[in-house]
């Protein structure tokens, strides 16, 4: 009898392990969604700016003149260790020059690398998973036009157990969803929602997280401690944000607050990206924020 229990327990453990192994396996996109699409690099630049790629993937000391050099190297401290943004320039050895379109799609939509590993969610694929296939295709076309850079990517400095990439499969099962959060009551608000929830990844900083780094979607955009350890990132829902729609648009355009202070810290980068979008897109983001519950 005890032998039977042991056998059962072992059997269950093996079954659980096998099931767990499959559940935590990295996933890939349906390649058919991308096969007929042609990339438009000019529109891809807008996707690139809206998604804020340059803010993380340019070198820490880079200037902002000319096309961005996506050599990587910026450090992102977190409770789990320090992540380093990789080289995503079109360099075939150290960048992503050897990638195909579906490799980029798998990275952005599924958080899966070309060699079938999970990416850490410091790369905000939990946001980009909402990106439209055409936008990913256009982005891919644009990124191929950027300068190559031979800087090797730096290994992340992450401690056990978070350094076991497979464990991220479990994290994804629990926390990775493609649900939309905010309203889409008008075309403008829907466009704003796409810019915020699919590309802009505002929530990555403006929404608080639990101990395992999961966004608390019940407190969507309601502010959070600054991961740098100093200060807080503000609540940008109508409950706290008293700025008018025009105030928000001006802030996204020039970085000036209603009392003519200017954006600093990470938000200065965000404004730099948003200022390159069409005015209608900045208005759409403002409309979405004003429409939040």
């Amino acid at each position: 009898m005890p032998g039977k229990i042991v056998t059962t327990v072992i059997g269950l453990a093996v079954a659980g392990g096998v099931a767990g192994w499959f559940i935590t396996a990295p996933q890939t996109v349906n390649a058919g969604l991308y096969s007929g699409l042609n990339g438009n690099a000019e529109h891809g630049k807008l996707v690139f700016d809206a998604a804020g790629c340059a803010s993380c993937h340019t070198a820490p000391d880079s200037k902002h003149d000319g096309p961005p050099v996506l050599s990587g190297g910026r450090a992102f401290a977190s409770d789990f260790g320090t992540f380093y943004a990789p080289n995503i320039s079109p360099d075939t050895t150290h960048g992503i020059g050897a990638w195909g379109l579906t490799d980029l799609a798998n990275a952005m939509i599924k958080g899966t690398s070309p060699d079938g590993q999970h990416y850490y969610p410091a790369f905000p694929y939990t946001t980009y998973t909402h990106a439209a296939p055409q936008d990913v295709t256009d982005l891919f076309a644009y990124m191929q036009t950027l300068p190559t850079d031979p800087t090797p990517s730096k290994a992340h400095d992450v401690s056990f157990p978070f350094n076991i990439r497979r464990s991220l499969g479990g994290w994804k099962v629990l926390f990775f969803s493609d649900d939309w959060i905010g309203p889409d009551t008008t075309d403008q608000i829907a466009r704003g929602r796409y810019l915020v929830e699919a590309l802009g990844h505002c929530a990555e900083c403006h929404t608080p997280r639990n101990a395992l780094g999961r966004l608390d979607k019940s407190r969507w955009l309601q502010g959070a401690p600054n991961p740098s350890g100093r200060g807080t990132i503000p609540d940008i829902t109508p409950a706290s944000l008293t700025w008018s729609q025009a105030d928000l648009v001006e802030y996204f355009t020039s970085g000036f607050t209603p009392d003519y202070d200017s954006a600093g810290g990470e938000m200065a980068d965000v404004v730099q990206n948003l200022s390159k979008l069409p005015k209608e897109d900045r208005q759409a983001i403002a409309a979405y924020l004003k429409a939040l519950p």
Binding site: G255, S262, A263, G264, G265, A268, D269, Q272
Partner: peptide
């Protein structure tokens, strides 16, 4: 102008 203010503040 905002960009110039922000560059230093950043």
């Amino acid at each position: 102008l905002g960009g110039a203010c922000g560059a230093c503040h950043k």
